[in-house]
Amino acid sequence: MQAFTYANPKTLKEALASLAGSWDEAAVLAGGTDLLSLMKQDVYAPKKVVNIKGLKELKGMERTGDGGFRIGAAVTIDELMKNRLLGEEFPALRAAAQGITSPQMRNMGTVGGDLCQRPRCWYYRNGFGLLATGTDGKSLVPSGENEFHAILGHGNKAFFVSASSFGPALVAYGAKLKIASASGVREVNAEDFFRVPASATEREVDLKPNEILTEIVLPVSRGSQSATYEVRQKEAFDWPLVTASVMVKLSGGNVSEARIALGHVAPTPWRSKEAEQAITGKAITEASVESAATAAVAAASPLSQNAYKVQLAKVALKRALLAAKG
């Protein structure tokens, strides 16, 4: 790990003033589970680290005035998982937290950190850059070790998968993220926060070096049913192979509204409007979830070693929909 300076601001304003215009100048430190491993592997060497764990603006979980829910970005995964009210109203989010299996990780990691963590792509983690480029400027992934890479949305360029566990559930719920900078606060749809970088110098999230993700705002969940289903290689501490988060509203036994997002299949949480369309207007049955799952992966273009993820994505989505039905 390269040497750096450490700042421990007491207020959000002070924290924002401690950041800089470039990622190389300053990095935000919350739980540190991702930042420290990136720095240890010399993938990232910021000159300054700014601790935001102590900021009261980033803490707490509570109901909002309109009946939704607010989660501070520095809330730990453990705190989120154990919040009874949140778990009852947003079960897809609780299930996503439960999927982060190590107690130590849940105790340290924060909700904001889960959303802002960098991809786990082993090319990226070993210094080949976000787009895993070789000396010829092309991605090493298609002809390399790609069993955990993207099957959707990679555009034959960005083959990493978004590592966020909460991303798909937040997209399914239509959550909004609040992002602060010295010039004010802006709000972004969770769905738009994640993006496919055009170059290796861009980030895969809509965040500038001088901004801090401060809170997540969930809309009212009343009248909706939701679930997350996760497939892992092993039951213990591991990253998911595929996840599916769904939120549906039922009217007279039929789906009147659906929001569906797959995780770990694309460079972003992958919202599937095709699957939403396929299930809307229908009752949730074995047959209808099969057609929704088929629609979700119709555009998949798997790589040499990850075609198995197409089937896993279908299974995860079917089981999430059946679980949401209850």
Binding site: Y6, A7, P9, E14, A15, A17, S18, K48, V50
Partner: peptide, 18 residues
């Protein structure tokens, strides 16, 4: 010596031993 504070930012400690 601690790095100089920039603007209203928090004082940065290090990179040497503190």
């Amino acid at each position: 010596q601690p790095a100089q504070a920039q603007g209203a930012g928090a004082r940065a400690l290090g990179p040497g031993a503190v």
